[in-house]
């Protein structure tokens, strides 16, 4: 579904992503891990069109995305959350989500129903009228997910949505991801919570200093000596 081919990103002579190639098959959950500054979010930005790679191609559903801006890509079915959350602070939670639904081409009344259904699914209905700016961080992260879901995506990129959540909340999030996946939604997930990502991902990609250094099933990744050296520090028991 998503094919990234030799993508390279340079910032002022600094190579943030170096010839990264990978694919995400339809219906899969793929994890993307790596130390801070490895280039994970930059990779997300090239997939969603926020930045243009200096080299390489990104294809989605067989289509080259090079000429498409972030809005076009969203309308094709690529949605994302932001690691540094970006709520529309002056809007209510409902209207935040409504914006996502509107871009699918829904009329306002219909989009409001979509927004409310999405909020209900994320157990945020009681917050619908609250100003987004008034939410605590954990809920802002959930709002990111709600907004992205409202666009009706086929591929959802999640950027560290589990940071700062307690174990119960993490489990709820995992349940939600599994349920959405069962409905056909494909995931690419950046996550620092190793136990969580190893539980849910079918394939894990490891990025270090802009390079993909490993790719495989969670069990294989946790035993990969190179991954242990640069990132995990010590072998992780698969949960």
């Amino acid at each position: 579904m998503l094919e990234v081919q030799g993508v390279t990103v340079d910032f002022d002579g600094l190579r943030a992503v170096d010839a990264a190639s990978f694919r995400v098959d339809e219906g899969c959950i793929v994890g993307l891990i790596g130390p801070n500054g490895a280039g994970k979010t930059t990779l997300f930005n090239t997939v969603t069109g926020m930045i243009r790679p200096s080299a390489g191609t990104v294809r989605f559903a067989g289509r080259d995305l090079a000429r498409l801006d972030p809005a076009d890509r969203s309308r094709l079915g690529i949605a994302r959350t932001f690691q540094i959350v970006k709520p529309f602070g002056g809007l209510s939670v409902r209207d935040n989500v409504l914006v996502g639904a509107l871009t699918r081409g829904q009329a306002v009344a219909e989009a409001r129903r979509t927004a409310e259904a999405t909020l209900e699914r994320l157990t945020m209905t009681h917050l619908a009228d609250a100003l987004a700016a008034s939410l605590p961080l954990a809920l802002r992260k959930r709002l990111e997910v709600a907004r992205a879901l409202a666009t009706g995506p086929r591929l959802l990129l999640l950027d560290e949505i589990m940071g700062g959540l307690n174990p119960t909340e993490v489990n709820e999030t995992l349940t939600l991801i599994r349920a959405l996946n069962a409905e056909g939604l494909t995931f690419l997930i950046i996550e620092h919570n190793m136990h969580a990502i190893m539980q849910i991902a079918e394939t894990v990609l490891v990025l270090n200093q802009g390079r993909l250094i490993a790719e495989g099933e969670p069990a294989a990744i946790t035993r990969d000596p190179q991954v242990i050296a640069v990132y995990l520090g010590e072998p992780l028991e698969p949960a």
Binding site: M50, D95, G100
Partner: peptide, 26 residues
Amino acid sequence: RRSPLGYYLVALREDEDAARALGVKV
């Protein structure tokens, strides 16, 4: 304000990157 344009404009004002990621044509 009651049309999609109104919501898009306010979204762009509040956070342009987030609005674009949601499919708003700047």
